[in-house]
Amino acid sequence: MNPMRRRLLAWVAITSSSILSCNLYADDTESHAANTKPASVVQPGAKLKMIGESYKFTEGPTADNDGNVYFTDQPNDRIVRYDAKSGELADWLSPCGRSNGLFFVAPNQLIACADANNEMWSINLNDKSHMVLVDSVDGRRFGGPNDCWVDTDGTIYFTDPLYKRPYWKHTIPSDNPRGVYRLSPDGKLSQVVDDLVQPNGIIGDSENRQLWIADIGDKKTYRYDIAEDGSLTNRKLFCDMGSDGMALDQERNLYLTGGAGVTVFDEKGNKLETIAVPKGWTANVTFGGEGHRELFITAKEAVYTIPTRVSGLR
């Protein structure tokens, strides 16, 4: 055989072998990647546990530093406390302004969306007294503050949709503007979002300066950057799902609520899993218990818990 031809055939054989090896390696890598799923946020083997069902419609859970959870039973005008150590539930405050969303501010303050008179409250945990922080904007009543988040400097962000209540003795026009507001520590109120159909759930990350707001009326959740002056910038669509309430964990996974239960998304907006809740509607969620590693879920007349492998964002 011609020496040149022999060298050419040898080169072809080596090249073909290399290409085949690369393809096999690529196929194996792709197969491995396809079969690798993120770890569940739920502790291995953990099951959903109903801890109470004597309510009419549960909402607004928030946890204190010890993991005790405060939540609302809005139609019955009461705030209920879940003791993290004993697991006992007991009425804590009634009446409570028909509070909806709550947020704990250390060491002894609850911020409450008090829906009876369309107000934002500050409730003292020690003596249970309250102070009205704000009740109107530009001379008109709010539509009904619904959910809130408090930044580390005490700035309050809250959503103001409109869900007409049968217990209102006043009238809120159907065309009342829907919005998201910022209440600064010195009491200055400003509107930070005005272009959502029905803003509802809200949660923030004070360390990374980000805020998530659910537009439940448009089945969307958006992520915003919190600017130095407290305004919201760089709106980005996070996922095509709205939410009644929401929570964040230490891995920056976002927990949204609705008809299926609690749906979890990673920090990039990829759906990880859904924790099914058998009540037809899950209203809100937070982290409580020891180390804040217990997901606390409000769902219509019931409340549930389930242990998680990752703690809630504090």
Rank of each mutant, 00 (worst) to 15 (best):
I19A: 06
P166A: 01
N208Y: 11
K219E: 15
E59I: 08
T286S: 11
T221Y: 11
V137Q: 11
E53A: 13
T72Q: 05
D91S: 03
G154I: 05
A260I: 03
A33R: 15
L48G: 04
Q74L: 08
L102E: 01
N2K: 10
L254M: 06
R5L: 15
D205A: 02
A106L: 00
G144H: 04
T171E: 15
L102M: 00
I111N: 01
A39Q: 14
I226K: 10
C22H: 05
K300F: 12
R309K: 09
T36M: 07
Y304A: 04
Q198E: 14
Y224R: 03
A283K: 09
T221D: 05
R309A: 14
G101C: 05
K268Y: 15
R314W: 11
L9P: 02
S129H: 09
T298V: 05
R5E: 15
P307Y: 06
P161V: 02
N2Q: 07
A114F: 13
G143L: 07
F71G: 02
K49W: 11
A84S: 06
N124E: 03
S206R: 13
L24G: 03
S231T: 12
K236I: 10
L48K: 01
V80P: 12
V69W: 03
W149C: 12
V197Y: 11
W121G: 07
Q198W: 12
S16P: 07
A114H: 11
V310E: 09
K47D: 10
G288Y: 07
G45K: 05
Q191G: 04
S311L: 09
T15R: 06
V264S: 08
K47L: 05
S231V: 00
A39F: 04
V310I: 10
D205G: 06
D240Q: 15
V12Q: 11
V105R: 05
I14Y: 07
G230F: 10
E251N: 08
D153R: 03
V150A: 02
Y222T: 01
V132F: 07
V137P: 03
P173Y: 01
R81V: 06
R98I: 03
L24S: 13
P107R: 01
L183G: 15
K47F: 11
P173W: 01
A302V: 05
A283G: 14
N23C: 15
L20K: 03
N23D: 07
S129D: 09
P177Q: 09
N124V: 00
N2Y: 03
E273M: 08
D194C: 07
G230S: 04
E88R: 15
T221L: 01
L189P: 15
S122Y: 06
M131F: 13
G179Y: 12
D240T: 10
T263C: 11
R165L: 09
G259L: 11
D83T: 02
P38K: 00
P161D: 08
K188F: 14
G269Q: 03
Y255Q: 00
S311N: 06
K220A: 15
L8H: 08
I216E: 13
L196V: 01
T263W: 09
C239V: 07
K236C: 11
A13F: 06
Q74Y: 12
G201C: 02
V69G: 08
F71E: 00
T233C: 10
S129I: 02
K220Y: 09
N200S: 05
V277T: 05
G187V: 06
